[in-house]
């Protein structure tokens, strides 16, 4: 069963189209990575899924119902983001107690063990925490709630490297103990690459790629060779990325769907191939120009 069904969802802000007819489905018990550049619409999408906002047009369903003003969706979803502001009158322990009251599947033991591990004092007040500690606390909050749909919007902002590593490990362990649907948004694909099953790449409010992360590595390939040879060989195929190198060499990234004949031709012409890392590929796919920042300076 699909946990999230999103069909042609559009959302406009005053001056900008945040989501532009985006469609996808997320299956039950999968960890999906949501990746995109700043302002691509990641947070807007997650807010609509969490019922914070309503789509302007199109249809978005969570657990088969529209999440906006929906108690059932709210009770089964937890949305962790970096703007969470808990009541200044409550200390961390009291926040957990309140959460336990609201979220039926709350795991009290785990929440306090995680708090202890990350050396957060249960008597501490939320507003006194540093930025990284707030992120850590939010993360513990999100994991302990055990909600059927757990959403993390850039959860590692402000965390130091050690905590970051621990977080991803904790997320994985927790998922194995208690499989559920998790959406993880991040700028850093390399961090979450080993964790996620599916990747949803968005650009300008539209889905660009949605596939198992394992397939992504095969999806595109880099071609290196003399510029005229490479250009001739590629023909009118779409270049995902191209970069000039020394001695008239070019580095071009293209879709990996060549026939055997074409590949043999390439070997004869002295063209070299190399794999493209998922992170780089995402950067290339989402960049505004083909040559990246180099174009600005040329």
């Amino acid at each position: 069963m699909n946990v999230i069904e999103c069909k042609d969802v559009t959302k406009n802000y005053k001056r900008k189209k945040a989501l532009n007819s985006i469609s996808f489905q997320i299956e039950e018990n999968k960890i999906t990575g949501l990746v995109g550049r700043n302002g691509a619409g990641k947070t807007t999408l997650l807010k609509i899924i969490a019922g914070y906002m309503k789509e302007d047009s199109g249809e978005l369903q969570v657990f088969g119902e529209s999440p906006f003003n929906n108690l059932m969706a709210s009770a089964n979803t937890i949305f962790i983001h970096d703007q969470m502001e808990f009541s200044p009158a409550l200390n961390l322990k009291e926040i957990f107690e309140a959460a336990e009251n609201f979220y039926e599947k709350w795991d009290r033991e785990r929440s306090f063990r995680l708090l202890h591990y990350f050396s957060l004092d249960p008597k501490q007040y939320y507003k006194r925490l540093s930025k990284g500690m707030k992120s850590t606390f939010n993360m513990i909050f999100g994991l302990s709630a055990n909600c059927t749909l757990t959403i993390f919007d850039e959860p590692t902002t402000g965390m130091d490297a050690a905590v970051r590593k621990d977080f991803y490990r904790a997320l994985l362990k927790d998922y194995l103990d208690n499989p559920r649907t998790i959406i993880l948004s991040s700028h850093h694909l390399n961090e979450i690459e080993d964790l996620i099953e599916d990747l949803l790449l968005i650009k300008d409010g539209k889905e660009l790629l949605y596939m198992p992360i394992a397939d992504l590595k095969e999806w595109a390939i880099a071609v290196i060779g003399k510029s005229n040879v490479v250009n001739e060989w590629i023909g009118n195929k779409e270049m995902i990325h191209s970069k000039d190198m020394v001695q008239d060499q070019v580095y071009v990234v293209v879709r990996n769907d060549f026939s055997k004949v074409e590949l043999e031709k390439a070997y004869k012409a002295g063209i070299k191939f190399s794999p493209v890392s998922s992170t780089d590929l995402c950067v290339y796919l989402t960049s505004k120009t083909k040559g990246g920042i180099d174009d600005v300076f040329s």
């Binding site: 946990v3 108690l71 059932m72 089964n76 009541s87 009158a89 009291e94 309140a98 009251n101």
Partner: peptide, 25 residues
Amino acid sequence: MSLVNPSLIQIVKKQYVYKLRAYMD
């Protein structure tokens, strides 16, 4: 997939108790 389905009254009650404590200042 087991979903929790709380009633409006339950949630209002929980929120009320929470607010009495959280809006202390």
